[in-house]
Design a protein around this nucleic acid. Structure first.
Lengths: 245, 245
DNA sequence: CGGATTCTTGACCGGGATCAATACTTGTGG
DNA sequence: CCACAAGTATTGATCCCGGTCAAGAATCCG
């Protein structure tokens, strides 16, 4: 029996105005009516168990998703068998935008832990955009954020050494946990070293070595997946060593 | 005196329905009225001379642009002095989307040759989106295309060797020239080796060597910036060598 | 022309990949 | 509850791709 399917809860109507995460995915200053509209297009929340797929490359675009709880990784696989993790997604972050262009998804979203997402039929979202300029505008901002984020990732892959990439990665995670109300110095990596490596264009051994090096330098403490950033400034300075020319 | 400024032609009203490039940036099946609307938000075409900037990182977002003629490179520069070319843009491609999220641009767009762009005040574009669901939807598709494209670039930087990246780059250029009605086997590189290198996360010497290697293999002929793809299949097979495991 | 920019090629070096062995963690079924 | 298997992480040894430094050639442009 498939837990994933059982775990869908289509009969619990979502209420965006009561959602703790609303500041992450919705703009400020929405009217009550607009909140109701938003809740209406989130047709249901879906629970996905660790390792299961939210959507696959090739699947027709039916929904956009917003992570409500947990975390998800997005990756692409080519005909030639290349695999590339293109991002890790936490609460409030949107998934599935890639599918709009072709009408089908080009990447695959996999739950890194038991998670929960808000499911929005894309048709309904488009209709709502037509009704509410505030939402319409907000959606464009979310899309733009995605692009800005990818630019940053390209910068990492294109111009940083392995340790610089890993430092940037840890700092980025740290910041995202902080904006979600968690500790910015202690958190749990939900993904494997291989996932991090793929995301950063490195091999898992290199990730492992770099983590060990950071530990030796007293920048972090790490036990399995539990990370403690002991010296955030030191981590940041790794990115700035570049400057000294 | 600044040629760039002189070259603006605000008094020639654009007519999208008569534009040769319209299939590249507009959806099919627009009504006459919608064409007029589009033309109205393209307040003017702007000519930019080689080397001049369309916008700078930090500039407030006022316009989105579509390349009409010529080509443009987009790049980001960090505090630490890192520089990363994030893309090359040809006719029909949109520029400036990155600025929507923060309200200011995060990358810089530089003309690689004397070029011409359609200038659309972002406010007007938003207003038009509110009026025309077809345009609204199309804008989201264009944004999504940008994201899909960046995913592909991440794949290149994250999982390809230098020759693979260059082969992918040349094939991508080839395809884009073809869809614009130019030869897919002979074209001129508008950017320097250093630009290509930055885009692909490699040094210019590596680009030069890889081009020489392709020439030795009989895959291409290259004289300065003029490229002739002699053996497209061969180039493609470089990407697929990966497969054989 | 002549100077600046761009490109090519060579020699050498080093960072990260690869291969390999081992340890640790997690989960499953007897 | 333990045993075993599968997945995950660490660390070492070695190799090679692409970076770096450097010299020279070609091209562009005023």
């Amino acid at each position: 029996m498939n837990l994933t399917e059982l775990n869908e809860t289509p009969f619990l109507p979502p209420d965006c105005s009561a959602c703790k995460q609303k500041t992450l995915c919705l703009p400020e200053g929405l009217s009550n009516e607009e909140f109701v509209n938003c809740s209406n297009i989130v047709t249901f929340n879906k629970k996905i168990s660790k390792g299961s797929r939210l959507f696959h490359a090739g699947d027709p675009l039916r929904f956009l998703y917003i992570v409500k709880l947990g975390s998800v990784k997005s990756s692409i696989v080519t005909d030639e068998g290349r695999e590339q993790v293109i991002g890790f997604n936490m609460s409030g972050e949107m998934l599935g935008i890639d599918g709009i262009y072709h009408g089908f998804h080009t990447c695959t979203a996999t739950a890194l832990e038991d998670s929960e997402v808000c499911v929005m039929p894309y048709e309904d979202l488009e209709a709502l955009c037509g009704q509410s300029p505030a939402i319409d505008s907000h959606v464009r901002r979310l899309f733009s954020r995605e692009i800005v984020l990818q630019h940053h990732n390209l910068l990492m892959l294109g111009s940083m050494s392995s340790t610089e990439r890993l430092a940037a990665f840890l700092l980025s995670l740290s910041k995202r946990f902080e904006t979600r109300g968690f500790s910015r110095t202690e958190f749990v990596l939900r993904m494997t070293r291989a996932d991090i490596g793929s995301f950063l264009g490195l091999k898992l051994e290199t990730i492992s070595r770099a983590l060990s090096k950071f530990t030796e330098l007293g920048l972090i403490e790490i036990h399995q997946k539990h990370v403690h950033i002991v010296n955030p400034k030191g981590l940041r300075s790794i990115l700035q060593e570049h400057k000294r020319i």
